[in-house]
Design a protein around this nucleic acid. Structure first.
Length: 480
DNA sequence: TAGGATTGCAA
DNA sequence: TATTGCAATCCTA
């Protein structure tokens, strides 16, 4: 008997793509029972539960417990309670995530403040210049007004359109920036504003009294098995420019003389593809530590690494040819030629993918290496476009879900290690293929050895080894 | 005030 | 016809 079981996660295992798996929705769907909302029992007054009238409160509480029990019974009948992934991964992970959330991440509040002041100055200067260049006062944060100014007052050449008017995204503006400095200034203004509002003010507002951030990890949101993070979202902290670096530099150790160490799975999805397809050329590249994008670049006969990278990712993300061609700015025909060359280069990948689709057409579902199933009801659709999209989903699913499971298992084992060896260092973040630790002085060497050992050995197949890169420093800044 | 639309940040 | 997320901001309903 399991110690801990979560019916919500049970519903997620059944239907990871269904958004409505909250208790009241499931009660309605499965038992046609309409549960009372909190608004119902408070008559929409903003009061605490202790102030709710006792009878209403008891019925409300009874519903929660009773419906949960009913759902549990149903899951027992459906054998969801025997689902390996649920019992061995998702349920135990709850406890680990709880620990990570409560422990939090230490942030240098003054550092954030400093960057904020710097940004405010930059924004102020840019704002004045933009208004001056435009010759009229307007709100630069309003896409609508920016569009009107650029295309109806200054008559800049029009680019893409959106549902409601002109697109003024960074894409469009960057094209204009070559000839019109105001466009570049708006791009910069937006960039700095974004960092200031979301990452400086946003994060500062969520710091606790000891300057720690406590995110919430959501285990049942993403249709790909990944975690997501809210309040704040710690999985989209900027990384790729100087301002971003400054923000990451504010993520520091809670320990005196402590450090931050990040462990990154290196190209985990392509490695999984190699592993699952058993393609000799792909395996050979990994075995000999040949740069995989470089390998593909040579094989598909292009000069551009960018194209090779996109083609490699094509499989992982399930992008359409059209999407690929747009991503790297080449004609669809050319994109499809590259994909053909990709398949010629890695023949077993082609066979593997064809088999996934064939299997899915027969069984209506795909399965991952850890036994998760996903039903794909459009896989035999008569509409070609819908079928193609279903096929991409089928191809993509085993890779994405397996990689999500691998890091979840790693987290469970890391947690066990930390408890068993009474390690002071803490797991503080999970960013999809990366685990970040706040490391207690003198534990660096032990931790590096043990964590890499754990992460690289989640799966015992020997054809391709998982590889983990280590980054360490005084802050999160040095970890990329 | 709620929610859609746009934009942009990550893997 | 473009993978998965979250959030700030503007703006209409």
């Amino acid at each position: 008997m399991a110690q801990f079981y979560d019916t919500l996660l049970g519903e997620y295992i059944k239907n990871p793509w269904v958004r409505w798996i909250w208790l009241d929705k499931v009660a309605l769907r499965e038992f046609e029972y309409e549960m009372q909302s909190y608004d119902d029992i408070t008559n929409k007054k903003e009061i605490g539960f202790e102030e709710v009238e006792i009878k209403a409160a008891s019925i409300y509480s009874w519903e929660d417990v009773y419906m949960t029990a009913k759902i549990f019974k149903k899951q027992e009948e459906e054998k969801v309670t025997e689902n390996k992934v649920l019992i061995e991964i998702e349920n135990p992970l709850v406890e680990v995530l709880k620990r990570v959330e409560i422990d939090g991440v230490k942030v240098d509040r003054d550092r954030l403040k400093g960057i904020g002041m710097l940004l405010e100055k930059e924004i102020d200067v840019l704002q004045k210049e933009i208004i001056h260049d435009a010759g009229i006062e307007f709100n630069i944060s309003s896409p609508k007004q920016v569009g009107e100014i650029l295309f109806e007052k200054l008559w800049l050449p029009k680019g893409k359109k959106t549902k409601t008017g002109y697109s003024v995204s960074a894409d469009v503006l960057s094209d204009l920036a070559i000839n019109f400095p105001i466009a570049q200034k708006i791009v910069d203004y937006r960039h700095y504003s974004k960092i200031l509002s979301t990452y400086i003010n946003g994060l500062t507002g969520l710091l606790d009294e000891n300057d720690f951030l406590h995110t919430s990890y959501n285990q049942f949101i993403a249709a790909t098995g990944r975690l997501s993070s809210t309040n704040p979202n710690l999985q989209n902290i900027p990384v790729s420019n100087w301002v971003a670096w400054e923000v990451r530099d504010a993520f520091i150790s809670r320990f005196e003389n402590g450090s931050i160490i990040a462990f990154d799975y290196s190209q985990v999805e392509i490695r999984l593809l190699a592993l699952m397809s058993e393609d000799e050329n792909l395996i050979h590249a990994f075995e000999n530590e040949i740069d995989i994008h470089e390998n593909t670049r040579k094989l598909i006969e292009t000069e551009e690494r960018k194209i090779a990278k996109a083609v490699n990712f094509w499989v992982i993300y399930g992008i359409s040819w059209f999407g690929l061609s747009k991503m790297i700015n080449i004609p669809v025909k050319e994109a499809s030629e590259y994909i053909n060359k990709f398949f010629d280069s890695y023949p077993k990948v082609k066979i593997y993918l064809e088999n996934i689709i064939k299997n899915c057409e027969e069984k209506w579902y795909v399965e991952t290496m850890f036994g998760r199933k996903r039903f794909i009801k459009w896989i035999n659709d008569a509409n070609k476009m819908i079928k193609k999209s279903a096929e991409r989903e089928a191809i993509n699913m085993p890779i994405q879900w397996s990689s999500a499971d691998i890091i979840k298992i790693a987290m469970l084992r890391v947690d066990k290690l930390i408890k068993e060896k009474k390690i002071h260092s803490k797991l503080i973040m999970q960013v999809h293929d990366e685990l970040v630790f706040d490391v207690f002085p003198w534990e660096e060497a032990l931790l590096k050895k043990e964590i890499v050992q754990i992460m690289e050995n989640i799966i015992d197949k020997k054809v391709v080894k998982l590889k983990v890169d280590i980054w360490e420093g005084k802050s999160w800044k040095e970890t990329k």
